[in-house]
Every structure is written in structure tokens, then in C-alpha cells.
Amino acid sequence: MTPEEAAREPFMTLIRELVRTYQAFESYAIPDIRRHGFNPAEFDVLMTLGNTPGMTLTELGESTLLFKTTLTSVVDRLQRKGLVQRVPCEEDRRRTYARLTEKGEATFREVFPAHIVHLKERMGQIPVRERNRLVKALREVRSYLDG
């Protein structure tokens, strides 16, 4: 197959639209995340740990989909900001928990609802039936990719 033929594959339209949609979402969401003083990876970790008693670093990595090396540096930065603490597991010294500090909890309680309000300005415009249809369609696309 030549590059020209590959570019004309019928499914490429779907791929282009998925990428453009993700880029549009990032273009809307990331400036708000930065306004709160975070980069997207830090924000992801902070929001994932919010409303939890903490997670092992392995669980946190699976929940955020960050690479282990990236996750370690993100947790380090959040720890330096006083938002996250590492807590050794008493039952298994090989495991470490990441947990929000009091300052981290306060930040989560402030930033998470504010970001949701920001997202709702655009995402809330999509009628419920249409949102449900889109969620179903995206899950179906993901099922093909998951194999």
C-alpha cells in the first residue's frame, strides 16, 4: 500500500475527527487547568486522588494512564507544592500510597467544581439524548480498538 492509498482508507475520516475532537477539547480545557496553576498531568493526578483515601502509585498510574516515570515526577512536583504526600503501606513495604494533604484536599474542593463549571459552559450545551448517543458511539469505537 502506498502512502497515498493509506491516506484514502475510509476509516481515516473517523480517525481525523477523533483527533480533531480531542484537540478541540484540550484547547478548551487546558487553559482553564493552567489558570489554576497546574499542567494537565498534575491536574489529572490531583483530580484522581480527590474524594479518595489515597491510592497506591500503581493504582494511580492505572487510573491516570500516565507512564510510571511521568507519574513519579508529577507526584514529586505535587508533593513539593504540599498537595500530595507519599505514605508507606504498613502491610507491604514495597507499596506506597499517594494521598492528598489537607492543602491538596482544599485545592481539590476549590478547583474541581470550578473546572466542571468551565466544562459545562460548552459540554452542557449538548442535549442529554445527544450526549448519551455520543457516549454510546465512543464506547463502540473504543471496543473496536480494545480488540
Rank of each mutant, 00 (worst) to 15 (best):
M47S: 11
R142V: 05
M12S: 09
S143T: 06
P10G: 07
E91H: 10
A106S: 13
F25T: 07
A29G: 00
S73L: 05
V87Y: 05
L18T: 08
P31C: 10
L138E: 05
N132Y: 07
E140N: 13
M12N: 15
R99H: 02
R16T: 06
R133G: 08
T96H: 06
F38H: 10
P88W: 05
T21N: 10
A41F: 10
T2L: 08
F43C: 02
A24G: 08
R20L: 14
G50H: 15
G104E: 07
V128I: 08
L49P: 00
D92H: 09
E105H: 10
R133M: 03
G82N: 03
E130G: 03
R8D: 13
P3N: 14
V87F: 01
A29R: 07
L14K: 09
V117A: 12
S63A: 14
S27L: 04
T56M: 07
S63L: 01
E102G: 07
E121F: 04
E59W: 00
R86F: 03
A24S: 12
T72Q: 13
R133I: 01
L145H: 04
L65K: 08
S143R: 13
R142K: 14
L66Q: 12
F43H: 03
A98V: 00
G37S: 13
Q85S: 12
R129K: 11
R80A: 10
S63Q: 08
V75P: 11
I15C: 04
E9W: 03
G37A: 09
P53W: 02
Q85R: 12
T21A: 13
F25K: 05
L83T: 04
A137P: 03
A6T: 06
T52K: 12
H36C: 01
G104T: 06
R142S: 09
I33M: 08
N132L: 15
T13M: 07
I15Q: 05
